[in-house]
Design a protein around this nucleic acid. Structure first.
Lengths: 250, 250
DNA sequence: GCTAGTGCACTGGTCGGACCAGTAGGCTCT
DNA sequence: AGAGCCTACTGGTCCGACCAGTGCACTAGC
């Protein structure tokens, strides 16, 4: 016992130290989105490593969505504003390799969307209500056009609600999970025969939700939002897993 | 109008194609966790690219948490089971770079934890209830020990609830956001003077939540969980942002 | 015979140099 | 003054080399 306790030193690879430094600079605001990194040949001098090492570091930073490099660009790599793209990426691989079921994803959407509506009912501005109105109007037009435009309008509605919730994390996660769910059910939807009826029913549900949001009745809006989502996606969920979704509908 | 519509071809870099192929093999189950990739020198023959290109591809795959390579390993890189580590990484940079406030993070936790409790109230097994009991018992012991062990027991409780919810996505996101929140408030908590009172109060709240879960009263458990989280974290949230949290407490 | 120690044949990590295709901006020529 | 070329960069890729580890087979010693 006693004596100095040494921490285990793990060989930190050179490219990782490069990543760390650049990452820290970005997070501390020293490097802001739109700014350019020095060229790879400059970086290899500044860090006194080889260009291979610099490039491996840049690949990691690029995979994390922090920078982007373009061949032939006279400037260096560009510092990017954070986008949920990498979050989306990791969550979709999670969905694929970690065997997330559609039921779990829809359930998650139900939770998030309901919360977004609950918050939006109290915090929404008139402009945001107008956006939701416009989105529903576009949904109605799109019924006669294509499923794609209907879906786009539907997404716009849910996104407006998410933004009105005032919580960026809810907004981003909603967006990410939604696109994963849409990917999963897209082929199934394409084969549905009574699509038009489903769309019309969905529009009615959305109007009820919006009415509750407009009235400021958060709990009602949340309940309706859950119900709307369930009615729309339940058919794609294996019957055995539907009870878990119903559990959210009290 | 008319004529063939060509899609814009964007120069796909060689290392990206390598990433794609390996990624697809992992997602299709051709490569399963624990298996080894061929060595870099083998891969450069198979893909007929240089080792630099192979290495850049491996860096990307490693950044995405799909493989890990160890120097000196006689085998190639190891295929990893997906862990939320990369999800955690991207969400924490999101929290730092994208200026997520503590209020938003806590609000998100309130939403997820409440839903987990709602579901757990219906789906929990006896073993899971026992786990929650044990966690609370450890919390009580830890009051006299240290904040760290108290926090660890607290995490164990919430994790047991999240697992009992039956939704892996809720579990993972709860875990990720929780650790980010704990990081943010850790230094503030360290300076709190009346920590013991807070801990005791928190234990009482947890017991109420657990009672509701045991009784199968989901809505009550959810409400209590939100309240518990609010009471515990509100002091760290700037006063101006607390109303947004209160909006969840109906 | 079996164990302990030693090489050896790999591995990944890093380096340096080289070439290519692309870009942007300055330059020249008209 | 404008249109076109030219050049000096950029990133992408390749090659060859060396180093420090690791695991395994082999060997020397018991």
């Amino acid at each position: 016992m006693g004596g100095p306790r040494f921490e285990p030193v793990q060989a930190v690879r050179a490219y990782e130290r490069v990543v760390e430094q650049v990452e820290e600079a970005i997070e501390r605001g020293v490097l802001t989105p739109g700014q350019r990194l020095p060229s790879e040949r400059d970086l290899m001098v500044q860090f006194s490593v080889s260009r291979s090492t610099v490039r491996e570091a840049l690949r990691v930073l690029q995979a994390r969505g922090l920078v982007r490099s373009r061949p032939g660009d006279p400037n260096g790599a560009e510092v990017l504003a954070f986008s949920p793209a990498t979050l989306h990426k990791s969550m979709s691989t999670l969905a694929r390799v970690s065997e997330l079921s559609l039921a779990e994803l829809v359930q998650f959407r139900m939770v998030l969307d309901a919360s977004a509506n609950l918050l939006a009912a109290r915090l929404r501005t008139e402009e945001q209500l107008a956006e939701m109105d416009a989105a529903i109007a576009r949904m109605r037009e799109a019924v006669e056009e294509s499923y794609e435009s209907f879906s786009a309008a539907d997404v716009a509605f849910h996104d407006a609600v998410a933004r009105a919730s005032g919580n960026k994390l809810i907004q981003i996660c909603t967006d990410v999970v939604r696109s994963i769910v849409l990917d999963l059910v897209s082929e199934k939807i394409a084969g549905a025969s009574d699509r038009k009826a489903l769309m019309l029913e969905s529009i009615g549900h959305h109007e009820e939700v919006l009415a509750a949001v407009r009235a400021g009745d958060g709990p009602l809006a949340a309940r309706l939002a859950r119900r709307t989502m369930y009615d729309y996606y339940a058919v794609y969920v294996p019957e055995g897993e539907r009870p878990a979704l119903l559990a959210l509908l009290e």
